[in-house]
Design a protein around this nucleic acid. Structure first.
Lengths: 129, 129
DNA sequence: GTACGCTGTACGCATACAATGTACAATACA
DNA sequence: TGTATTGTACATTGTATGCGTACAGCGTAC
């Protein structure tokens, strides 16, 4: 369901949150659905349950999840918030940095362009909400 | 020439390296060109010169820069390396996570798609090498 | 050629963060 | 009501970040 890379620069709880967020945005995890318990997912990923809990808390603070003791984590119906003023510029910068790193790593510009166009199309599709 | 955000999650030296790498890939910094000294850039950005030095070392280890005591940092002509096997997949995952975060922050899908298409076009242009 | 100023580098320190071990509190259910 | 299961809180440990300081190589004026 998910995979993380220990030894990466980005912390484990961040990777878990990022991966789950991608699934949530793609509606692979739908509102009302139950997520694995922190302990269950921790075992699957080979980390401590508190590490998973931190990721869950992050997503909960973003409005994606509802957390309750004894009941687990539930996906919420989430209204998309008003974007902060600098959010757009920050995204653009991050995207360009990500591309620079990819080129540094030797990925061909054609491959990168293809991925970008595919994602652009997928993002457009999701407009239906 | 560059700007960093103290208080961000990504460390200062990482932001500096990312920003410079973007300039290098875009050829805003050309081979043979001289970069500011670690102390000069440190003053400009409001950080310690060792923090800039760490960023320079990272870029040097990627083959972007030549570092020499007393002489400063010089941009190198850099052959693009062979991409590692997992590099492409990792890029795709990072890109999708970046998009998920942007949507979470409330940026419109239309804006995101526009940025992606623009970057795809720019990446294609740079093929000339 | 020698002294001086410039460059990047190495090391130790304070602090903050990541991940964990352990114990706890709230909920579900038999 | 009792017990298992859930997320949470807190102390501990290892690691990373950023800084202060001192050092080593290089260029240049004299």
């Amino acid at each position: 369901m998910l995979q993380i890379d220990l030894g990466s620069a980005t912390p484990a709880y961040g990777q878990i949150a990022n991966g789950l967020r991608a699934l949530l945005v793609a509606r692979d995890l739908e509102p009302g659905e139950q997520l694995p318990t922190v302990r269950q997912l921790a075992v699957d990923l080979g980390v401590h349950h508190n590490t998973v809990a931190e990721a869950y808390r992050q997503l909960a603070s973003e409005g994606w999840l509802d957390l309750k003791r004894g009941r687990g984590a539930t996906v919420l119906e989430r209204p998309s918030p008003f974007p902060g003023p600098a959010a757009r510029a920050q995204f653009t910068r991050r995207l360009e940095e990500l591309l620079a790193k990819a080129i540094t790593d030797g990925i061909s510009r054609g491959d990168l362009a293809a991925d970008l166009r595919r994602c652009a199309a997928e993002v457009r599709e999701g407009v239906a909400r």
